[in-house]
């Protein structure tokens, strides 16, 4: 089922799960669309300003992504790469993964099966 409710506004949520120096693991939930993507970008910029270099995001509860979300992820990945860090995603739902595949993002953003795998690959 589509999870959309007309009463919802910003239904995206990003949570910091663990921070270890310049490494953060986080989770991303809900709908990442043109309305909510700027909130993601603001959070990323705040983390990058506080020294973030390596980021792994668990996406098993990310239900929807549009090109605005892809753009925010691409910009973040470029900023982290420029600091010799990286952005990795984990546990994408099938429909979200399809959007990554169509857009060719699966070739530039490493996607792991689980968050533990993403963290392992990042070391």
């Amino acid at each position: 089922m589509s999870i959309f409710n007309p009463g919802d506004k910003l239904t995206m949520e990003i949570k910091e799960l663990e921070r270890n120096g310049t490494t953060i693991t986080a989770s991303l939930e809900g709908r990442m669309d043109a309305l909510s993507a700027p909130e993601f970008s603001r959070q990323m910029d705040a983390w990058i300003e506080s020294g973030l270099e390596k980021l792994a995001i668990e996406c098993s509860r990310l239900d929807y992504i549009s090109s605005a979300g892809l753009r925010a992820i691409l910009i973040t990945a470029k900023k982290l790469r420029a600091r010799s860090g990286s952005l990795r995603l984990a546990a994408l739902q099938e429909n979200v993964r399809t959007v990554f595949t169509i857009s060719g993002f699966d070739k530039i953003i490493p996607i792991a099966a689980t968050l533990a795998d993403a963290v392992k690959e990042q070391r």
Binding site: L70, L74, K78
Partner: peptide
């Protein structure tokens, strides 16, 4: 196709 740092930002909406 291009690599991360060369990949242009945007233009995907109409393609989708």
């Amino acid at each position: 196709q291009s690599d991360l740092m060369e990949r242009p930002v945007g233009g995907l909406g109409i393609f989708l």
